[in-house]
Structures are given as C-alpha cells and as structure tokens.
C-alpha cells in the first residue's frame, strides 16, 4: 500500500460517513408526475450520487414511491400515470423512445416491500433473470453466478443444501434476501428498494441493513423507508418529500441533526406541522 493511500485512509477514516465524490449516476430535472388529472410530483430536481445509499423519506402519499418508480419506468405499467421532465441515468434520458424498458429494469433493479419470490426453487429464482437476459453461456457459469449472487446477498450459507426447495418456503427475511440475490444476479448498476424491511422482524431487518451497507460499494441504492432510524442508519444522503415536492435533501447526518426546512424538522421530530 502506497504512503499516499495510507495517508488518505487516515484522513478519511475520521469522518463519520465517507461519501465518495463522483458525478451523479441519476439526475432528474423538473420531474412532474400525474395520475390522471392529479399531480403527484411537482418539479423534482435531484442528483443521486453513485455508490452511495440515498433514502427517500416523507409522510404517506408524499410521492416518494412514485418518484422511485419513475427511475426504472415502473410507472409505465399504470395507464393513467404520466411522467414529464427529464430523468437521466449516466447521462442517458431513460424516457427516450429508443430505451428498452426490459433492459432498463435489469440495469435498475427493484426490491419491493413484501418479499415476492417466484413460485420456483431457490436456484431458479436467482437463475431466472440470468436466463431471460441471456447473461450466461453454460450451466456451470449459471450455477456460479447463482452461488455468487446468493453469497453477496448473505443467504448462501443458509440455503446451499436446499437450492431445489421452493423459494416461498423460506422465512420472510430470507425471502427478501433471495429477492435481493435475484436483483443483483443480473448485475444492475442501481437498486431501488421500496420499504424493503417493513414486513420483517428486527433481526431480519438488521441483516438487510448490513447487506445494504456492503452493497453500496458496488451499487447505487435508493431506498424508500418510513423508519427514520433506518434512513439514518443506512444512508449517506437523504431526501425529504412532502405533498409531491422535494422539500430538502442533503447529507443524512445534517438532515437528522439540523434540517434547514421547518417541514423537515416537523416531520422527523414527530410534530404536528
């Protein structure tokens, strides 16, 4: 290890959270979303940095999940939903006509509130995406990728002897990690998580949080959560949404110790605004 590298590590190790300084992987400009005539998001402009965790917080109905679903065009599946404005991932406009939503969603994976494994074996759950995207050329490569993904999701040791058993037979926390393994198998760059721990007990939650922290080295993660403590624990950046508007965003540490906007303060301290 070079001297400069050691010195750099010493310099950065004192910081509470090291935030890599890189250009944003996702950039949104003036994003409006309508459900029929109802405006759900109003001029959302946000830069999301790479290899970090950003949490989206706010009261129910504030638009945080709607925003999350814009980032891999999940809202396309809702007929009455209309998205305006500019959303770019690595500079590419993801709403451009030439964009293939299937490959976009492989690039921008998603983990949902309730674990939703396919009614297939544990192995097939992870192998499925690899197959449909044609990402492996041989059986042994497929098996390797499944194993690697399950290891990275922290599930391998618990399931290695029963890969043929149905994924739905696992516990809730294991199912959620299986869904994460399924998501990371296709090597996305970005992972969207919509309240991934709300159906899990504290131990399963802690495992997912630990996993999120490990995963940020390789992925950019955006997580919607109703747990302030979870947002504070897992993310380096936090964005607060309120009534369809992005009220405040910044370093998580700053948002939770000294937010600038009164609405943020009221929400995170549990006050009537």
């Amino acid at each position: 290890m070079s001297f400069q590298l050691i010195e750099r590590q010493i310099l950065t190790s004192g910081k509470r959270q090291d935030i890599p300084e890189q250009p944003p992987v996702i950039s949104t400009r003036d994003v409006d979303v309508y459900y029929a005539d109802k405006k759900a998001l109003d001029k959302i402009t946000l830069d999301i940095p790479a290899n970090a965790v950003m949490s989206l917080i706010g009261p129910s109905g504030c638009g945080k999940t709607t925003f999350l679903r814009c980032l891999n065009r999940m809202n396309d599946l809702i007929d009455i939903c209309r998205v305006e404005g500019d959303i770019r991932i690595d500079g590419q406009d993801i709403y451009a006509p030439e964009v293939n939503t299937v490959s976009l969603r492989a690039h921008v994976g998603m983990v949902f509130q309730r674990p939703n494994p396919f009614p297939k074996s544990i192995f097939e759950n992870v192998a499925y995406g690899l197959r449909i995207h044609g990402l492996t050329s041989s059986k042994s490569e497929l098996a390797d990728r499944v194993e690697d993904s399950l290891k990275r999701a922290g599930l391998w040791e618990e399931v290695k002897d029963r890969l043929d058993e149905p994924g739905t037979g696992l516990s809730g926390g294991q199912q959620q990690r299986l869904c994460i393994a399924r998501t990371i198998a296709v090597q996305p760059k970005i992972i969207l998580m919509d309240e991934p721990c709300s159906a899990l007990d504290p131990i399963a939650t802690a495992k997912i949080e630990e996993l999120i922290d490990e995963m940020r080295a390789n992925f950019t993660i955006i997580i919607v959560t109703h747990s302030m403590q979870q947002a504070a624990r897992v993310s380096q950046h936090t964005a607060f949404f309120h009534m369809g508007k992005l009220v405040e965003q910044g370093e998580t540490r700053q948002i939770f110790t000294s937010p600038q906007d009164e609405r943020t303060e009221s929400y995170i301290t549990g006050r009537i605004g």
Partner: peptide, 9 residues
C-alpha cells in the same frame, strides 16, 4: 424516543 433534529440537540 430516538429524538431527532432540534429534539436531539
């Protein structure tokens, strides 16, 4: 209570 922001301070 996990106080936040001004409460925490």
């Amino acid at each position: 209570r996990h106080p936040m922001a001004e409460d925490l301070r």
